[in-house]
Computed example of a mutant assay.
Amino acid sequence: MTDQPDVTIWHNPACGTSRNTLAMIRNAGIEPRIVEYLKTPPTREEVAQAIAAAGLTVREAIRQKGTPYTELGLDDPARTDDDLLDAMMAHPILINRPFVFTPLGVRLCRPSELALDILSAPQKGPFVKEDGEVVIDAEGRRVL
């Protein structure tokens, strides 16, 4: 595998989508820089920049499932982007994942196949997600 520090993933190893995304990056022959964002949270500015670069709103980038989202009242539409970013800083589990950064762009890779749009290297062979879904066929082509 080629070490390509220009590819970074904000990764949570407990998340299947994050694991699939990392495996897809590696299937392209790329060893990315892995940031386990729950252990080493990004700064507020980094989160805001990632969200903007991915073309998302803060609300679209906040994770609800398995987080204190509802308990913190973040489902209230009156909560501002600043409120949501403050909550993400206090509770990094609220940062949706995985974010992937490459020279071709930034994506919140939900689903994991979104990483394919910003990888400069082609897939080296077949790829099947953990749930059995075929994403890349034996010839390295994306299955739609």
Rank of each mutant, 00 (worst) to 15 (best):
L116W: 15
E113L: 10
D137Q: 12
F99G: 11
M89C: 12
P103L: 06
P77E: 14
P77A: 13
I93Q: 06
A78T: 15
P103D: 08
L114C: 03
T80P: 02
F127M: 07
T102D: 12
P126M: 04
M89Q: 13
A90L: 06
A115S: 13
D82S: 10
L104T: 09
E130M: 14
P92R: 06
T102I: 09
S120H: 15
L108D: 02
T80K: 02
A87N: 09
E113R: 13
S112Q: 11
D81T: 03
I95C: 04
I136G: 05
D82C: 04
T80I: 08
R107F: 00
L114G: 01
G105M: 07
D117Q: 14
C109P: 06
P77M: 13
V134K: 14
D83S: 05
P126W: 03
V100E: 09
E113D: 14
T80L: 08
L119F: 01
I95E: 03
P77R: 12
V106P: 00
L114Q: 10
P77Q: 13
P92Q: 06
M88T: 04
D81M: 02
V128R: 12
H91I: 00
D131S: 04
L85R: 00
E130D: 14
V135M: 12
A138W: 05
L119S: 01
P92C: 06
G132Y: 08
C109T: 06
P126L: 01
D137R: 13
I118V: 15
A90Y: 01
A78G: 13
M89W: 02
L94H: 07
A78C: 11
P111R: 08
K129M: 07
D86K: 04
N96K: 14
D86R: 00
I136P: 01
P98T: 07
I118D: 02
P98E: 06
L108W: 03
R97Y: 11
R107H: 05
R110T: 00
I95F: 05
D82H: 04
V106H: 01
Q123D: 02
A90P: 10
L119E: 00
L116E: 09
K129D: 05
I93W: 02
A87K: 09
A121K: 15
F101E: 11
L104C: 05
M88H: 12
L94S: 08
A87H: 07
P111D: 09
L114E: 12
L104F: 06
P77Y: 14
P77S: 12
P98L: 09
L84C: 08
R110L: 00
I136E: 08
P92M: 06
L116R: 14
F101W: 12
C109A: 15
R107D: 00
G125N: 03
D83W: 06
D131A: 05
P122E: 15
T102S: 15
V135S: 01
L116F: 15
P126A: 13
I136W: 09
V100W: 13
S120D: 15
G125P: 11
P122M: 13
V106N: 03
M88Q: 10
P98M: 09
D137S: 13
I93M: 07
P92L: 04
I136Q: 08
R110Q: 07
D82K: 08
A90W: 00
P98Q: 07
Q123R: 02
V135P: 01
T102M: 11
L104N: 15
V128P: 02
D131P: 07
E113H: 09
R107I: 08
M88W: 10
V100Y: 12
